[in-house]
Nucleic acid binder design. Structure first.
Lengths: 224, 224, 224, 224
DNA sequence: AATGAATGAGCGTTCATTCAT
DNA sequence: AATGAATGAACGCTCATTCAT
């Protein structure tokens, strides 16, 4: 995590550094990301970055953390309270997640950083914990859904959780695919716009419908 | 592709090189994978690797090709012919895929290499073709399933394809999870064994059941 | 061209680097010149040279530029203004050129770098321009000489230009020869001294006399 | 010099090796010339070249020697015996030299190899001797010319020798220039043709006329 | 606190040459 | 005699990190 020095920096400078670093790490893999490029583009001295962060890894982890926090904050704020129906809730989750990503270019960067969590070459306790938390959250939802009698109980909860996870993880690729956009260049404004123009409501509805029929309790399915 | 020289090498040496290179490239991203490390661990001279392969990229592509071939060969041999039912076929696909991965540590490496196909920083005709083929293969299956009246037609085929893709892509993570194993260390023999001890039949059956109910045609569902 | 960093270096260090690099590039062809050798002999870290110059080519071009500038500065300072007679002017050119080369070992290095201009494997705009300028300069002199009626017009101007060029290009070999010195080791102080002790005035006079009789207008020749 | 083994080779193979090596060394500087490329293009084993030549240098020197010999043989055969007039003789020398170069692509390669003699990075006794011989040859001609009263004696013989040398050395550049051809690509057939189409007779006549007036004895000049 | 010069291990790649067969 | 695999030093260059000011 950053040093005290970093937090004493004038807001603007701190922001510039974060923005630049986000762009760098979103665009490149951890190993390919270049500290030199970051300081050059942020207009600060090479040595300074090491006054703010212990090393490359430290900066990287901080960005992921920031991303996670931003996402959580957004969700806490935007997500309607839990409703009665699991699938409605899950749909809300997807909607809010997508809205987060599309809300601003910065959020797209956050989204990309957050997704690195799962494939990062860095072994780190914090990452592990975040990963576990997000998986546990889904698992809890599923379990609650089962208890409310909305989710079938004849397959293990882990399987269903994995299912939902897979769906969420790969979702942005689907959107990119449908929008005809390179999934790795989704941050670029024109690509972002294209995705925003999709009929997301419709897509979500279909998606959740598939899930509902696959995962829902027998008698809950296809009753008109 | 490798030089003639490489194929003239004694089996054992060739094998050592491939094994070492597979481990290196499976463990690291393309950019991070180190030729120096490979030769050091394979016990050959730095110059030698360049007698066998044009350059790093050449070696990398060869490994992916090897992986693809091995997988195809396995599938051709093990997969029962197409049956009447889409979901039975898809289940076969998963079963055979998983059996391939678990058949040997080498196959696990192959599987990891093959999966790089989708995220490789290398733009190469062969890779592109392989990727397209595998995506088209799933889409074709889905379309055929719809024609046979086994798959619902009220959601776009792309959505269903994406679904299946997500399931396949993330599947090995699920197995690792259930087996209580670090997904990135699945190659290690003891981890491999743990996964092998899972009741794969049961897992597959459940998984496909979920899919069948989510994706199948209305009247095909839940018929006892 | 060098980075700002380079110019911020303490004079002495900068000088050491330039001197070492000049020696390396003067002694070897571009391809054979070794950055490793330069840094070793200059006593700096390998990475440092890349803080000062973009790459090998950048360093090389800088040295040539330095050489060109030094020579021009010297000429501007030492050369008497144009006189009436072409051959007097050309003699001046030779005199000043030779004086430049012999003024210091450094200048000898400069002279060697400058001469690389003509045979460099590097295609570079600056080099091309310098080459063209120097060729055009001679051609202009010749044409002016013809207009003033001092140079014969019955042979093509290109032939005469080539003549003068050949004379200038090979001149330093002649001096070396007469001084009994290896032309490739002219930079070494003792060799330099030997050449400096030659009766240059006499040599120039003879040389220009030959040229004047060969190239001058008929009636201008041998008039006592 | 080559080993006995080399001379025992079938004519055709030996020829192939020489031709390929000539092309390589003519096209690249000594350091840039690549043994690997030579053996690849000559279709022989890497090790073989070292059965024929001690090392790269040995091969290189042999090629220069071959070139020198070929040129001498050509001259001995084609050059009219010494005539009365020095300048006629020198003109013959140029004519025969040019004819040699243009006689065949192979001769162009020889010519380029021979010219490397003067700028070679290799210090070798043979080279030194060849260089000295060719300089001495010119010097002898000049001295004889003076004795016959055809060359002025009021400037040192070395100066005149240097003059003629410069003229000969730089001559091919002049031809290339006039023919509008890159001097470094003169070997290529189309460029060779362009040079061949020049009015060489006229060029030689002009050139020697300039020399004659510049170097000839006073009373020999401009007598119609 | 900020600077930016210095460092040196490491990279992929090339090459002439050697050596076992 | 011929082969071609093996070698390893050397190259230009990059990089995260350190350190003196």
């Amino acid at each position: 995590m950053p040093t005290e020095t970093f937090f004493n920096l004038p807001e603007e400078k701190r922001e510039k550094i974060i923005q630049t670093a986000l762009e760098e790490f979103a665009q490149h893999s951890y190993a390919q990301a270049s500290i030199s490029r970051i300081v050059r583009r942020a207009g600060i001295a090479k040595g300074s970055i090491y006054q703010y962060f212990k090393d490359k890894k430290d900066l990287y982890l901080y960005l992921i953390q920031l991303a996670g926090e931003a996402k959580l904050r957004f969700i806490a704020q935007e997500k309607p309270g839990a409703r009665q129906d699991f699938f409605d809730d899950f749909r809300d989750l997807l909607v809010v997640g997508a809205r987060f990503n599309l809300a601003s270019p910065r959020n797209q960067l956050y989204a990309q950083m957050a997704s690195k969590m799962y494939t990062s070459p860095i072994r780190d306790e914090m990452l592990t914990k975040m990963k576990e938390m997000s998986e546990a959250y889904i698992a809890d939802l599923v379990r609650a859904g089962q208890e409310k009698g909305q989710i079938r109980t004849d397959v293990p909860v882990e399987l269903l959780t994995y299912f939902l996870n897979a769906v969420m993880t790969e979702f942005h690729r689907y959107l990119a695919k449908v929008a005809g956009v390179d999934p790795d260049r989704i941050v670029e404004p024109e690509n972002l716009e294209r995705v925003q123009r999709l009929d997301l409501e419709r897509i979500f509805t279909d998606l959740v419908d598939v899930l509902e029929n696959g995962m829902g309790r027998e008698d809950a399915r296809w009753s008109p």
